[in-house]
Design a protein around this nucleic acid. Sequence first.
DNA 1: TTGTATGCGTTATCAC
DNA 2: GTGATAACGCATACAA
Lengths: 375, 375
Amino acid sequence: MSKSKLTVEHCATALRAVIASENRRVTSYDVAQVAGVSQSAVSRCFKPGASVSKTTYALVMKAAALLDYIPNAAARSLITRRSNMVALIVTNQANLYYPELLAEVSQQFAARGKRVLLFTLHREADVDRVLADVWQFQVDGVIAAARLSEAHIAEFDRRRMPVVLFNRTLRDHSVNTVTCDHVEAGRMLASRLAAAGHRQFGIIGGSMDSSVASERRRGAVERIAELGLPAPVVVPGDYDYRSGALGLKAIIAELGGVPDAIICGSDVMAIGCLDCARHELGLEVPQQLSVAGFDAVEPSNWISYNLTTLRQPLPKMAAAAADLLCARIDQHETDTEKRVFSAQFIEGATARLTPAGARTPGLTATGLRLPVAIM
Amino acid sequence: MSKSKLTVEHCATALRAVIASENRRVTSYDVAQVAGVSQSAVSRCFKPGASVSKTTYALVMKAAALLDYIPNAAARSLITRRSNMVALIVTNQANLYYPELLAEVSQQFAARGKRVLLFTLHREADVDRVLADVWQFQVDGVIAAARLSEAHIAEFDRRRMPVVLFNRTLRDHSVNTVTCDHVEAGRMLASRLAAAGHRQFGIIGGSMDSSVASERRRGAVERIAELGLPAPVVVPGDYDYRSGALGLKAIIAELGGVPDAIICGSDVMAIGCLDCARHELGLEVPQQLSVAGFDAVEPSNWISYNLTTLRQPLPKMAAAAADLLCARIDQHETDTEKRVFSAQFIEGATARLTPAGARTPGLTATGLRLPVAIM
DNA sequence: TTGTATGCGTTATCAC
DNA sequence: GTGATAACGCATACAA
């Protein structure tokens, strides 16, 4: 062990004692002192592409390690005007039904050197308080997976805060969005079911302020009308298991019989509907009733359900959201873009997907058979 | 509209233009200028219990509103040494199987004026990189719901970083923890099942580095031994649906027959086991086989499963974690405390919970009947 | 490549 | 109650 090394280490431990007694943090000045260089040299060593000599760098890193020095992100953000934090605003609902979303978003940003500050809404009314916090914390951008008003979006603009809406759209506003085409998904599902001969549909929607569920419903209703089928019975739902059972019973009551197919605004409701149909009402699914959902959550794939559903490409959507936001933050991109992904159809086994033909006549509520519809 | 008001508003709009042209942020100096007071007066107005006159306060708030001024948390934290952020370190697994956890923790801290910065681990190996970020971002404390080594905990101490371990314990270390008593839960489950006459157990554990699953397993194994029952067959699992089916088959293979009961380290595995037993192997549950899990995740309550399981009081645990951490942060509490909650038994319908008696003889693999065991 | 000097936006300390 | 002034810890323009 060389003499100079000994000196450096002694110096470091002595300084650590001083720092501890003064009850302050280790700063770049401390490192500079131990390393025998200036504070700016230390600063440069922690900046990726800076011009520092090999020897200075080694000295500084040695001293930093001895002192357990780590740059203070708050102080850095003050001058760089970059906090390397992004806000993720998410409703509890989204959190419960897409548990992967948080992890995906978090990792996509981590890979881009940014961390996620979490803002959960338990009620939509909280949005004002939450936004006030978002401004305070100096995040570099926002991923909003919650319902925001036009006024709120306008505030983002006013504060020049980059934002990407996730599965939300806002007409008449140039704002970055990443969405799954829920209208298309609803249409696709209706088409497939109609092609298999279903005529009378029931639809269990989401809560009234959920744009996702309402778009799915709209797509299905549109397509059913285009195909000239009887108007579906539409009942509201609350996105939960119980809603599925309640919705099914409400539809049967209103229709005075069992429909050919039930389209649910989410998998959890579809599973609730399915369990009710099979275990409470004793209906054979899909022989007497087809049931379909949306989202392809994990349980939809379990043997007991094997649900017919549509999958959102969540990992790709999270990556797209991170890309859009980082482009605005780091490359000062100003053009806005709307990235729309298609849902992927999962056949499952809770819906008949081929025409029943003569093999199983009389399954529809109306007793009428539809020729294979054009998809 | 009074003359002075007009002046203030004009002044504000003019200043906003200047600020925009200089491409800088709105600061407390700007507000002070518009309000006609000093910068420190503005600062005081935004500090909850400060001494400011009614009129000054009104002037400042008016000016702040006109300028869309919000205090900069980064600058504040530099001097107060408080960022009002806490880190939540969580594995992807925990995120997937306890989706409520994130929301609960986030809201508990929001209620205490703190925000959650999210750190997800996709591999345990990431922990070093993640911790480096935790230090950088100057969080006030850490909730760790991931496996941390003794060395890592020691680093928390060294950096004087308050930390609460969530569902993790570390022997020989005085550190705040909030846990569910998983050993007790495992024992409780074994007792109940043994009391109902089950003799031969199979256990599907969690992955080998999951303390939660291993504690549950240990509790069950201990209790089974205490009751003098045959040694259970223990196989590892991976916390996922597929592990449940694989585990069941492995147990049957090793045992050369169907055991009386399977205890799974998590609900998801229990559900996988259940589906395999019923739909692949054609076993009647619970008549031919009892299956139990842990966690009481939402699907465990669905009609198709109605699982016998144990619930962790997650909301209370999240609140306790927030309390402990905030006490250390805000009241500089130095004593450490371990808060242990009991799991709540959920009867469900996938396990026989009363002695079979003479009604259904010969159900056990060994054909022997156990007298009601002492709980 | 390196060191000096300055500013980021706030809170805290002190006189007044 | 109010206003000047000094930190907080870092990055950067500039001179050397």
